[in-house]
Amino acid sequence: MTKLLQWLLGVSLLGIIWAVIAFDLLELSVPGTYREVAWSMPLYLLVSFGCYSLATVGYRVATFNDCDEAARELQEQIKEAKEDLRKKGLKI
């Protein structure tokens, strides 16, 4: 099963459950308060997912390693390499 199919399946399953509760399609006589909550549930979920995403990405951007140490080390090695290669007869 491809990822696209998995997503479509998941979304349509949730959509059906939501529709059944929110519009009482099967006439299960779902209490009115349940229906009210269910009605706006997709919006709540979407907003909370959005917040979660923003928070996660924001946190990860803020904590993205700046590898100054590694960069300095590389710079040192570049000098060493150029020196050594010149000795070995490399002409650039």
Binding site: V57, N65, C67
Partner: peptide, 19 residues
């Protein structure tokens, strides 16, 4: 793991796309 010399914009795009 990490990056060097990336500005905020590039970090944001990278993290966002990865997420």
């Amino acid at each position: 793991g990490g990056v060097y010399g990336w500005d905020l914009r590039r970090k944001l795009i990278s993290r966002g796309a990865n997420f």
